[in-house]
Simulated assay, not measured.
Amino acid sequence: MFDADVASRGLGIELVDAGDGTARARMRVTAAMVNGHGIGHGGYVFLLADTAFALACNSHGPPTVAAGGEISFLRPVRAGDVLTATATERVRHGRNGIYDVTVRRGDEVVAEFRGRSRTLGRGVVPPA
C-alpha cells in the first residue's frame, strides 16, 4: 500500500516499520511546510500521523480506510525537525478499528492522533 501512496512519499515520508496493527513513519519538516507563524503547518503533522495510522490498520491485509480522525497539537514543530509517528491498534471489532498515533520530535511528544478505521466489504476494492 505504501508503495502506491504518492502523497506521503512525495512529502518525503518514510516507512520505518509496520506489522500486526502497528506502524512507524518518519518525515523531515521542510521550509515549504512552514506556515505564516514560522512553525510547521498542522496539516502536515496530521498527514504524517494519518499515514502511520493507515499503515497500521492495513497491516492485517484487507483494504481498510479512515472513518475519521482527530489530532491534538501539543508543541510547535519547525523546518528541519525530524518527526516520527508511531501508530498502535487499540481495538478492532468486526470491520471497525481504533488506533492511536503519537508524533514525536526525538523523545518529545508534539502531537497525539486518534483514528477510526473501517475495513472495506468483500468485493469492494479501492481504485488503483
Rank of each mutant, 00 (worst) to 15 (best):
P63S: 09
T84K: 01
P63K: 10
L83G: 03
D100G: 13
F73T: 05
V77P: 01
G69H: 00
R92G: 04
R90T: 11
G68K: 05
S59V: 08
H60L: 13
D100A: 11
A79V: 05
V65Y: 03
R78I: 11
L74M: 15
P62M: 14
R78T: 14
A54W: 06
A52M: 12
D100W: 04
H60C: 00
G69R: 02
G61W: 05
G68E: 02
G68L: 03
Y99C: 00
G68T: 03
H60F: 15
R75C: 03
D81P: 12
D100I: 06
P76C: 10
R90N: 12
F53P: 03
H93L: 10
L74F: 13
D81N: 14
T84I: 13
E70F: 05
L55T: 02
R75E: 14
A56V: 11
I98E: 05
G61E: 00
E70I: 01
C57K: 10
A79M: 07
A79S: 14
V77T: 15
I71G: 00
T64F: 11
V65D: 01
D81S: 13
A66R: 04
R78F: 15
T88N: 07
H60Q: 10
E70M: 11
N58T: 09
E89M: 12
T64A: 11
N58Y: 07
C57D: 01
T86Q: 06
T84V: 15
F53H: 10
R95H: 11
D100P: 06
A66S: 15
E89P: 09
P76Y: 07
G61F: 00
R90H: 12
E89A: 09
F73H: 11
S72E: 00
V82P: 01
A66T: 08
